[in-house]
Design a protein around this nucleic acid. Structure first.
Lengths: 131, 131
DNA sequence: TATGCTGTACTAGGTACATAACACAGAGGA
DNA sequence: TCCTCTGTGTTATGTACCTAGTACAGCATA
């Protein structure tokens, strides 16, 4: 798994981590009972402060996605996968809808919007195929 | 024109104002040579601090969208409309692409993504028709 | 000229986020 | 046991953003 942070995404760094961990669990990259990457390890990989990762893990613990195993790491809880899948869908839908709504309110015609989306989707599919 | 601020949009309030003013100019709601809403008036309408609006206007002045007319208000500069139209397109495209990219990277199948978008677009069109 | 509007400038305080550098408790392996 | 890993907690610093309140300069109109 490779992780990536967008510094000026609007979203706080710890929030981006929370999202990515959830997505990784939803996608099966990290399975129930397995360990999430260590605080220091992930911090090194993203070149950010370990405290920031810890902050993200605290929230994931609060949301009952991870549970702490002191001395060992953070373990993905049972039943987390299903919840993450559901959340993934919701988070993505929310972000897409909000972008579409802004586009719509800005006065762009939906037909133009449709072609714009189609173009971008094709570009993504092409990338996907070549990867 | 009615303005709206999303408190926890990720985007800073002043940034949301900058966007909305640009979109209003792009859409012809405010035309070149006309006045943008006053600092105090807009602040009252959005129930935020006048300084925050002023901050947004400073940026728009820096970007040569507005020019100051002390004692009168902020005037939309000549040639601002075309630039705002271009920027509007870029801003929207950027946000859509970033949402699509996240969706794609999260492991959602593009086919599923496509149906999701289609559903949402239809909903928007329906709203548009009823409005 | 006087009044009321405009934007501008300044200081101050509060919150959220990220960084930094620690110290600590528990698990596990040599 | 000892060492090294794990996450946790604490304190401090810095920055960005927003709020609050005040004062000022300039234009427009009565």
């Amino acid at each position: 798994m490779h992780w990536h942070i967008e510094p000026s995404n609007g979203l706080a760094i710890y929030d981006q981590i929370v999202r990515q961990i959830k997505f990784a669990i939803a996608g099966g990259t990290i399975r129930e009972g397995e360990l999430a990457p260590g605080v220091r390890e992930l911090a090194r990989e993203l070149t950010i402060n370990p405290n920031t990762v810890a902050r993200a893990y605290q929230q994931l613990q609060f949301e009952e996605i991870l549970e702490t195993a002191r001395g060992t790491g953070m373990v993905v809880k049972k039943a987390a996968t299903a919840r993450c899948r559901k959340e993934r869908r919701e988070l993505i839908q929310e972000r897409l809808n909000s972008a579409l709504l802004e586009a719509r309110k800005s006065g762009i015609a939906t037909s133009e919007l449709r072609t714009l989306l189609d173009k971008e989707l094709k570009r993504l599919e092409k990338e996907e195929a070549s990867a």
